[in-house]
Simulated assay, not measured.
Amino acid sequence: MEYALGVDIGGTKVAIGLVDKTGFVKEQSIIPTDLSIPPEDMIYRINSEIRKIISKTDLSKGELKGIGIGAPGPLDIKNGLITCPPNLHTWINIPIQRLIEKEFPYPVKLENDANAAALAEKWVGAGKENENFIYMTISTGIGSGIMVDGKLLHGYRGNAGDVGHMVVDTSFGKCTCGQYGCLEAIASGTAIATEGSNIVGEKLTTKEVFDLFKEGHPQIVAYMEKVLRVLGIACVSLINTFDTEKIVIGGGVSKVGEPLFQPIRDYVEAHALNPEGRLTEIVPSKLDQNTGVVGSAALWLL
């Protein structure tokens, strides 16, 4: 059996898993992303978890093909660098590929985390039957992986699909990237929890904001209707631009289910330019929270 290690680096946590050639996660570890320490120290912790996972499994020589890293952009995937991600604000030009590769006798590949997740959806998830689809993650931040004619759209440096910093409504204020009205600053889990807490006057999680939305809290309903409209605008823009078959939505926010998905579908049905585009499927990920790990491992197993 062939295996690969997938490392999914996020703004709040890092997931590390051993994945087999069917996409099954055999072993997994999740550790918090500590932004109070130097990036090199955080990578040391990641390497320690990789060692633990390898030590738990009795792999014969040659079974482990390599280590795949999915990380938030901007990246320089040609040189293995995390360059300046807004949600990892101290990670500037970090040679993560080299820092992991030097600790293990395995080759390492770096990929944008949303691109890696799109690979996972194509391999064993909701995009398995599609040659043209977009995976959009809504979590700490927002990003996307764009599959065109069965291949990932990378762009010049590997950063294509960074839709979280697509400006959709400047009235919502300033984003961490410096622009006003970015999708991520409006509709990420972080943004929803922050603004929902401000409205109610107490600290809320994203789920609790959605719970109040479902319960009909007047101010939260008015706010969330704007957020969901913005997500609909973003999906229509992607459909109009890429003429895609399907948009797969993953990440923690997607777990709220139909209160998220149905308003987006309604907006797309009303506003996509092409009549066929209005029928674009808007579906949840089929991989729960393992999308990033499976996708990072897919860099070696596909």
Rank of each mutant, 00 (worst) to 15 (best):
N115M: 10
E215P: 05
F261A: 07
I43F: 10
G143Y: 07
Y135A: 07
I77Q: 08
N240D: 08
I43S: 10
S55D: 14
D34K: 14
G158H: 12
K286G: 09
V268E: 01
C177Q: 02
C84G: 01
A187I: 07
L260Q: 04
G201P: 02
W91R: 06
L212I: 05
G251K: 11
L260W: 03
E103G: 07
I96Y: 04
L5S: 00
P105E: 07
N79H: 15
S237T: 04
V25R: 04
A160Y: 02
V25M: 03
C84H: 15
H165D: 05
I96Q: 03
L302F: 06
T280L: 01
E49Q: 15
Q97N: 00
T280H: 02
D34C: 08
I50T: 08
F242W: 13
L204P: 04
K78W: 10
R157K: 15
R98S: 13
N132L: 04
I100E: 05
E258Q: 14
M42D: 01
I77L: 13
N130A: 14
Y44H: 14
K65D: 02
L18D: 09
V167P: 02
V7I: 15
G158K: 06
V221D: 00
S139L: 11
R278W: 00
I82P: 10
M166N: 09
M1H: 11
D58Q: 13
R229F: 06
K226A: 05
A222Q: 14
W91H: 12
P263R: 13
P32M: 12
P95K: 15
Y156I: 10
M147K: 09
S55F: 12
T12K: 05
V7F: 00
E245Q: 15
H217P: 00
I249P: 01
D266K: 15
G141V: 05
V108K: 10
I186N: 01
T33N: 01
V294M: 11
G73F: 11
V248L: 08
I9K: 04
F261K: 12
L228Q: 02
V294G: 07
K151A: 13
